[in-house]
Amino acid sequence: MISVRPLSIEHVALPPFWNRNCYFHEQFTVHRSPSRTSSNRFLENFVFREELSQKQCETRSIFCSRMHSLANRSNHLVSYTLTVMAIITGACALSTRFLRYERPARVVGRRVELHHIPNFTTDNALNDFAVVNFDVKVDLRGLFNWNVKQLFVYLTAEYATDDNVFNQVVVWDEIIERREDALLDLNDVASEYFFWDDGSGLRNRNVTLYVSWNVIPVAGALLDVASPLTNRFLFPSTYKHVVTK
């Protein structure tokens, strides 16, 4: 007969990560016997070596004495939880880091008009004001994955004038939060924001329309992606409406 003597329950501690503080603490390792076997030494990690009086236990248990103390348990629980959450978040961010978010977005500008009127949004100086309607056709449903919280899709008009070598005006944007809403098919839509030039240099100028999107992740890198397709056209040479001061 092989007799197995199980360790009684009060002599066995929880797995090592629970008791990091306690059992290597000199206060608990008294009188190490010189003849320790390796298995004994291993067990010392788990076995409570010293009998403390009831009073001592109570007073010390609050802070950093025993594995069962409230402070110890909550400390380990909190740090363990935070570690796990940090690793999962990092893994989530890494998992989508190298995905490609480029898609072709077809855009066509329609009904382009120019006006020369006081810019009431700034200083009431006479500025060029453009009216641009447009079509946008793009399927962004494939961009959604577990690390995409929303897409911020916007239509940019880019042009150059004599005053400014580089101008960008956002004429329309849309926030998309669900995959089902990510199939865009807009026809002859009016611009959402005013298209004011900084001055009066829009006549006979080329303008390029293109769609871009900003990918907002659940956690990780913020990406800005522009569609490779653009629509380039010429502004008219005459104003439709002119205000003279």
């Binding site: 400014n164 070598v165 580089f166 101008n167 005006v169 956002v170 924001y193 900084d198 900003n214």
Partner: peptide, 8 residues
């Protein structure tokens, strides 16, 4: 977010 931009 940047909405309009003019560069000299």
């Amino acid at each position: 977010r940047v909405l309009k931009l003019h560069e000299k």
